[in-house]
Computed example of a mutant assay.
Amino acid sequence: MHRSSRLFASLVAGAALVASALPSVAHADGFSTTNIQLLQGWDFDDKKYGYNTKDGAMTTITLNHYSTWEYGDNFAFVDMYIGDFRDATGAPEFGSQAGRFGTGAQAYTEWHPRLFLNKVLGQKGPLFGIFQNWGLAGEVNVGPAFYAYLGGVGFDLALPQPYTVSCNIYYRYDKFDTHVWQISPSWTIPFAIGPVPFLFTGFVDIAGTKDLNGDNAIDILAEPELLVDVLAPFGGKSNRLYAGVEWIVHKYPSGFAHGGVHEAHTVSAPQAMVQWTFN
């Protein structure tokens, strides 16, 4: 078996093992759900975050977990990437000679805990009729030669179930920009066309950054997903198997500002996606 095939099989098996060990649905005061995703993407040339492959192709295995508890919620995921990665200059890197990245695989993880002060204070009903939950939000990001630590506030809009729209506003400390801000809206919108259920979900991270002059600029990362519930139209269990597309768009300053205009680099990477929900 080819080295990359063995590596791919090992990552799939490891992700499934971890997922099987995670708690299934819920204690009396909470809810939890776990899913695993397989994505195959193209046109990856993201030099800032290292998702920059020789042929633009990258395979991703993602393990997602979301849970709620009496006073808040948690979201965490682990991404495992497979591709022929280049360094930030565009040069291929290999094995032990690699600097930032190397050919093969790498992992990236995030954890998003929130503490809802409305639940701590026993508030009944939405705040101002708009905010269902509100309170403190944190985030930890760790990957190859990258880290970011974020803290701030977050809220959920008061929408009828099962629609959710949330937003977190952070102070961000990371490898590239030590003192910046970030706004992160996210959403989950189920809908149906005839007998076929769909799911539109995703997030946008809008953050302060610096160009090569050290001037202030904006970094935007968006990852919307459009998925179809594969089994439900045929009488199978709903919300179990989804298939569709995730589209990564990352726009960031790639050079110096000229006349107040920042030279920007935009990554636009479509990914075919399959998702299996364990519970």
Rank of each mutant, 00 (worst) to 15 (best):
P190D: 12
S166I: 03
Y149P: 01
L117F: 14
T178P: 07
K119N: 12
Y170W: 05
I193Y: 14
F116I: 00
L136N: 03
D156M: 05
S166E: 10
L127I: 09
L159N: 06
G152A: 04
Y171K: 03
G202K: 03
F198V: 04
Q132A: 14
V204L: 07
L212D: 14
F128E: 00
A192P: 03
V204C: 09
K124W: 00
S166Q: 13
I130G: 00
K175P: 00
A107F: 15
F128T: 09
F131D: 02
Q182Y: 02
F146L: 08
L117N: 05
Y171S: 05
N118H: 03
F198N: 05
L157T: 04
E223A: 08
G151V: 01
P162F: 11
A137S: 13
A217F: 03
R172T: 04
H179S: 15
F203N: 13
L121W: 14
D205A: 08
G125Q: 04
F116R: 05
K175C: 00
Y163S: 03
Q161H: 13
P144E: 14
H112I: 12
P195L: 07
F200K: 02
L115Q: 04
E110H: 06
T201N: 12
F128Y: 14
Q106F: 10
N216Y: 10
P162Q: 12
T209Y: 03
Q106W: 09
N216V: 01
T164G: 09
G194D: 10
W134K: 00
L221K: 05
L221D: 09
I189D: 07
Q123E: 14
E110R: 05
D219S: 10
K124S: 15
G208Q: 05
C167H: 07
Q161T: 14
P126Q: 08
N216G: 12
F191D: 10
G125C: 07
L115G: 01
G202L: 05
F131M: 11
V180I: 06
V120Q: 06
A222P: 01
P160L: 03
L199S: 10
L212A: 15
P126T: 06
F176H: 12
L121G: 01
A137C: 02
V153C: 04
L159P: 03
D205Q: 11
Y147R: 08
F203R: 04
I130C: 02
N216P: 01
N118D: 15
V165I: 15
G135V: 01
G129L: 05
L127E: 08
K124G: 07
F128M: 14
D211R: 05
K175D: 15
E223S: 08
L157N: 07
Q132G: 10
K119S: 13
G194M: 07
T188C: 09
P126L: 06
W181Q: 08
N133M: 03
V196C: 07
D205H: 09
N141H: 11
A145W: 06
V153A: 13
D211N: 13
D215G: 12
N216Q: 13
F155R: 02
I130M: 11
V180C: 07
Y108S: 08
D211E: 04
L212V: 10
G151Y: 01
Q182S: 11
D156V: 01
G135L: 06
N216F: 10
F131A: 15
I218L: 15
G125L: 05
R114V: 11
A207Y: 03
L117K: 06
Y108P: 00
Q106C: 00
A222Y: 06
D219T: 02
S184M: 09
